[in-house]
Design a protein around this nucleic acid. Structure first.
Lengths: 208, 208
DNA sequence: GCAGCGTCTTGACGACTGTCAAGACTTTTC
DNA sequence: GAAAAGTCTTGACAGTCGTCAAGACGCTGC
């Protein structure tokens, strides 16, 4: 309460800062190794601390993982906001959206395979389910902002429910990620053209 | 070569039979626990053998897993063949296909979450990649047989590449599986109606 | 019955894991 | 500057894992 100036921060803030610092180290490790092969010692090795410190800031390994997942969400959710707000035509939005998809696929593949890993693990481990369900809903909203804005710019109503639109685009993205990681160079171009072909189908037929 | 009658089988056949028997025990365990949490001892517990026998029939844990994945494929690949061959109209095929999707989702959820688990793990573990890529291609062909037959019956050309059609339907299926396992009762009805809405979009617009 | 072979069990090994307690080091407080 | 509180390291624990060697069991051919 008192003394929280620019330099000096409250102990609670510092505590949270350390948790975030550990979360970032953990996310790096998780993105490299995947959920199953990531140990607390390996996470600590990728940070500037020793392995015991994790239990000072997190009660559990699971608490750390869930914290990481939620922390990661905050970075994801605004990814396409610029695409939505900056586009002035349906075609322009589509191009920008596809380009952003390709960019995120190329630059953040480890984070995305981690997401798919965690989502799949939640089918086996109930403790992950709540966080995963919440993020999945957030991602669906994110996609829907793109699709509904696309419909608005095209002056045509949407022809698909938000959940279906998300599932379908997610399927394309996941396939592209798989191909990209497997070393197929055509995966990036492929996702772009597939998205260009698919998005118009999400709108009601144009009044011709 | 000699003496292979109805009753007596060659040692090589018996060897293969044991491998398949172990593969089935392994698949049961993998479907319950997932790739990461499945140990060789647990697999052996779900069979009538002890944990050491695995190393008699398989060199590695990984060799067992890959063998399982390939073994599992043989059961998958013909799943929708009856749908394709028995349908006489586009609407009939669509209904049968959607019903089969719901049935497989309801009755074989563990096997499918295992498939998604292994496919995701292949993004981290290269040794799984070859088998996964091969199965993915086989599944894509399976889906394409459905879609192209659907187009044939509807007397309209397809408007989507095989890979896109597979990715899109796979996305819907995965979302439904996730919902179903998370205990959402509406997941089964939802996938049926979503597929009904999506499949017509895979064909070129009807000449009206 | 005995040797030989294929099959399977048992028990052990080294490595790795999450967890936690004991204490060292640093910072804050009075 | 001493005491107290907060922060971090070290080392150990119990457990699990994949792997493998040694040997037991059962079957076949002689």
């Amino acid at each position: 309460m008192a003394g929280t100036q620019t330099v000096r921060r409250s102990p609670a803030d510092k505590h949270d800062a350390r948790r975030n610092q550990l979360a970032e180290s953990a996310l790096t490790t998780l993105g490299e190794l995947g959920y199953a092969r990531t140990s607390l010692r390996e996470i600590a090795n990728n940070s500037e601390f020793s392995h015991g410190v994790v239990h000072y800031y997190f009660h559990d390994k699971l608490e750390l993982i869930v914290y990481c997942v939620r922390y990661y969400k905050a970075q994801c959710v605004t990814r396409y906001d610029a695409v939505v707000s900056d586009s002035t035509s349906a075609e322009g939005l589509l191009d920008a959206f596809a380009a952003k998809l390709v960019e995120t696929l190329r630059d953040e593949a480890p984070m995305h395979r981690l997401w798919y890993d965690l989502r799949t693990q939640s089918m086996f481990e109930e403790s992950l389910r709540e966080a995963v369900t919440m993020i999945d809903a957030t991602l669906q909203e994110m996609i829907w902002r793109v699709v509904s804005r696309y419909a608005e710019l095209a002056d045509r109503p949407t022809a698909m429910a938000p959940s279906a639109a998300y599932a379908v685009l997610d399927g394309l993205f996941q396939q592209a990620l798989l191909g990209h990681i497997a070393g197929q160079p055509e995966a990036l171009d492929s996702i772009a053209s597939q998205v260009h072909g698919l998005m118009p189908l999400m709108l009601a037929p144009a009044p011709s």
